[in-house]
């Protein structure tokens, strides 16, 4: 595992894994969409609108997952100075932000017909919005410091401070009275969803997870290339300076 800390080895391994991940996610996404639209029944209360859940729930999970991944990478940057930790952090931020955004939008599109409103300031929705703002803050901070190493340390601190929000999102529905329903899949006592809807949801979740893993690996490979370009550009500028002197 530690040998993967070498960016060259990581590039080679990720390059081999990426096509398989992309293909597996495409196959699972096709299967998940088929199950979601043609196998899963309409809900007795929500009707057809329940089909929004098959994208809303996986994107919510991935929004939380990617922030947790960024926080673990932040620890890797600050404690172990792992060569790939800040690369992982930087590549994860836009993917997590995109999934959190999709979660909020699809939640609003489900909420309007079911609750009669696009938005309420309840604890789950508000903490999810805070998660999106944290992602945007982290992405903005990456752009404020030019040196990637220094930027990574500053971003790591911000990321770890923001991690406080992750358990708040998860447990908000238990700690406060919310309009948003409590957990119905990952809960003590098992899922409360019928198998005919649970399986399509799990297949869609796996498809989104593999897709996001492929995007993350691709993003990390590009970030390594970007740093090589930066290093070579500096070396070239130094050489031109020496020649001009």
């Amino acid at each position: 595992m530690w040998s993967l800390a070498n960016p060259t080895r990581f590039m080679a391994l990720a390059g081999r894994i990426l096509p398989w991940l992309a293909a597996a996610s495409a196959v699972l996404l096709a299967a998940g969409l088929y199950l979601a639209f043609f196998v899963a029944p309409a809900d007795y209360q929500q009707g057809e609108t329940v089909r929004i859940m098959f994208i809303h729930v996986p994107t919510a999970w991935l929004g939380l997952f990617f922030y947790t991944l960024m926080s673990l990478s932040a620890v890797g940057t600050l404690v172990w100075r792992h060569p790939l930790a800040d690369v992982s952090q930087k590549a994860a931020a836009p993917i997590g932000a995109a999934f959190t955004f999709v979660c909020l939008v699809t939640g609003a599109l489900w909420g309007k017909p079911m609750w009669g409103t696009w938005w309420v300031w309840d604890a789950r929705l508000t903490s999810m919005l805070v998660l999106l703002l944290m992602y945007l803050g982290v992405m903005a901070m990456w752009r404020t410091v030019e040196d990637p190493g220094r930027a990574a340390r500053a971003v790591s601190i911000l990321t770890l401070v923001g991690f406080v929000n992750v358990p708040i999102v998860k447990f908000s529905v238990d700690w406060w009275n919310t309009l948003h329903q409590p957990a119905s899949v990952f809960r003590l006592g098992g899922p409360t969803i019928h198998a005919s809807m649970l399986w399509p949801l799990l297949v869609m979740a796996l498809a989104f997870t593999l897709l996001s893993a492929a995007l993350h690996l691709a993003g990390m490979r590009t970030e390594i290339l970007r740093r090589r370009v930066r290093t070579l550009s500096i070396l070239e500028a130094e050489r031109l300076d020496r020649e001009a002197a």
Binding site: E48, T49, I52, I55, V102, V105, L109, P113
Partner: peptide, 12 residues
Amino acid sequence: HQGFIVASYAIT
């Protein structure tokens, strides 16, 4: 509610 479902999948 078809419009809400289509919009959700289209935006995603």
